[in-house]
């Protein structure tokens, strides 16, 4: 089974310093987009069960940090493909870059895995767009997956319930965080990951015709709160809370 897993590196949104309504992105650390770790875990489990290889592809559309990529590789990826030169957030263009890379580099795939949505953008647009560009089936928001011969069976987790679905391979599957518990590689594994095969691709080598988006502004979306700590013991806290409940008209 040849599995390709799509991995995005992103600023860690939990650690972006905020000044007024400005997000200081340059000061935020980089991480593997959360749910992509579930996608890698699933890819590696499939390889462990059925044999084959796992290829990770990342398109550098934002921050890049090789040690962070090595953390992802250390989970059990055999080789990584890094597409550079695309500096914008446009999931359709990213999907086009991956489709083009697969084609030009002759990378084989039976199954392509990715996250339901990226931790910075959460467009949930990459997998469906890639499926269109490659003309293969897509199964989105998958919380349970089973590969059976030439076919995948999956459970899709939707707002309105569950859907059991199947499709032929090759196919693209976007996974939700409920699908598995990603393994945490050891320091030694991360060091070794640095020696795994890495293929560099420049975006200029690719035909990236995709519709344009223009991001004109990003600002912090936070709301100031009173931030009053009630740590003067249970009785005092209770009294204050009851007072607030009364004030808000929750109780009389």
């Amino acid at each position: 089974m040849e599995v390709v897993v799509c991995v995005k590196l992103a600023y860690d949104e939990t650690q972006i310093p905020v000044e007024g309504d400005i997000l200081l992105l340059e000061r935020a650390p980089v991480k593997v987009s959360d749910i992509d770790r579930n996608a890698i875990e699933e890819a590696v489990r499939i390889k462990e069960k059925l044999g084959g290889t796992v290829t990770a592809i990342t398109v550098v559309t934002g921050p890049y940090d090789e040690t962070v990529l090595n953390e992802a590789i250390a989970m059990g990826v055999d080789r990584a493909v890094i597409v550079e030169g695309l500096r914008e957030h446009n999931p359709l263009k990213t999907a086009r870059a991956v489709a083009e890379t697969l084609r030009r580099k002759g990378i084989k795939y039976d199954l392509i895995l990715c996250g339901e949505g990226s931790s910075d953008q959460y467009s949930c647009a990459f997998a469906p767009a890639l499926a269109e560009y490659l003309s293969i089936p897509v199964l989105t928001f998958v919380g349970k997956l089973e590969v059976d011969g030439n076919c995948v069976r999956a459970e899709r987790f939707l707002e309105t319930g569950y859907e059991r679905v199947e499709s032929d391979l090759p196919a693209i599957v976007s996974v939700t965080s409920e699908i598995n518990e990603p393994r945490i590689p050891s320091v030694l594994q991360v060091m070794k990951a640095g020696r795994k095969e890495k293929v560099q691709v420049r975006s200029e080598e690719l035909d990236l015709t995709a519709p344009e988006l223009k991001v004109s502004e990003i600002r912090a979306y936070v709301r100031e709160r009173l931030r009053k700590k009630l740590d003067g013991g249970m009785e005092t806290a209770l009294k204050e809370i009851l007072e607030i409940l009364r004030e808000k008209g929750v109780i009389s």
Binding site: E13, I16, S119, Y122, E212, K214, V215, I218
Partner: peptide, 15 residues
Amino acid sequence: RLCFGGRGLELISVK
């Protein structure tokens, strides 16, 4: 639209 898990709000223009 929201970005960065809801920490940011971005304004996008499209044709």
